[in-house]
């Protein structure tokens, strides 16, 4: 047992140096002012930024829901296809992630612009031009596009483990499609849903480059606000840390609620 534990040592060393200590620094900065004295000022200022928090969480939620609605049927289809086909399909889902994140988002800029490719094509058939870039919709699109694979992969890996006979049994007992989905598939795939939702929601809520590139700068999200505190004109790591701390607490709360969905040990039913 002891020997097995020591196998985790490299990661423990790594995480103390690069995760735990930085996190403590964030907490320290959040409660100090420029002279290093203890203060609650940074945290109390955050009330002022409530609408930005609200906007970020709203957009991230919408993006998560859309990713789920697209990702779940896709993951199901992949999980039900033949094994060698599955491998190729998963590869295709992952494929966009081989390219740099910034480059992909930059690509959307040229697609969505007023003089962009989509509007030019629509113009040929006499439609448009539509105002697509620099809107909140474009920000949500960017989030869905970039984080969809994070939704599909955990869903796929849980759906592929669900025995086909469980579904057949449900159908034999007279369940219609909707009932199979709600009473069998959803409960069985809950762990995958929870981790998929987490993996889309968390990066979406804290993103800053997507909102800048696709939102036109006028749709400032919480990530942008934090970035401004460090790299903007008023170098204020104290407020920046306080904002990050609050964001972490918000996410922690949301994750706690999410985990409530996943309370039961349903994995026992998986084959």
């Amino acid at each position: 047992m002891k020997g097995k534990r020591s196998m985790a040592l490299p990661y423990v060393v790594w995480s103390i140096a690069f995760v735990v200590i930085p996190l403590l620094l964030v907490v320290y900065f959040a409660f100090t002012d420029k002279n290093g004295a203890f203060t609650f000022d940074n945290l109390s200022k955050i009330v002022h930024y409530l609408p930005i928090f609200a906007k970020s969480i709203n957009l991230a939620l919408i993006a998560t829901i859309i990713s789920f609605l697209i990702g779940y049927p896709l993951a199901y289809c992949i999980a039900r296809s033949r094994t060698h086909v599955q491998r190729n399909l998963i590869l295709l889902v992952m494929l966009p992630m081989w390219m740099n994140f910034l480059l992909r988002t930059y690509g959307w800029m040229t697609l969505l612009e007023n003089e962009g490719i989509i509007n030019k094509l629509l113009g040929m058939i006499g439609l448009g031009p539509f105002e697509m870039i620099n809107t909140q919709g474009a920000v949500v699109l960017g989030m869905v596009y970039n984080y969809l694979p994070f939704m599909v992969l955990p869903l796929y890996s849980i759906l592929v483990k669900i025995d086909r006979s469980v579904i057949e049994a449900a159908q034999d007992l007279g369940a219609n499609r909707f009932q199979v989905l709600c009473k069998v598939l959803f409960p069985l795939s809950m762990p995958g849903i929870v981790s998929g939702v987490t993996m889309v929601f968390v990066p979406s809520v804290s993103t800053f480059i997507i909102s800048r590139m696709l939102g036109g700068g006028g749709n400032m999200l919480i990530g942008d606000l934090i970035e401004t505190q460090f790299l903007g004109g008023s170098y204020n790591p104290y407020l920046g840390s306080a904002l990050s701390l609050v964001l972490m607490v918000v996410m922690l709360l949301i994750m706690t609620v999410m985990n409530a969905f996943d309370e039961d040990d349903m994995e026992g039913m998986l084959v």
Partner: peptide
């Protein structure tokens, strides 16, 4: 400098639907 920074965040971040966003949340 601080005044300008905060005012700028206000220009960029806040719009007419701020209350709406909070209610929505």
């Amino acid at each position: 400098n601080d005044y300008m920074q905060n005012a700028w965040i206000e220009v960029l971040a806040f719009g007419e639907n701020d209350v709406g966003a909070i209610v929505c949340l």
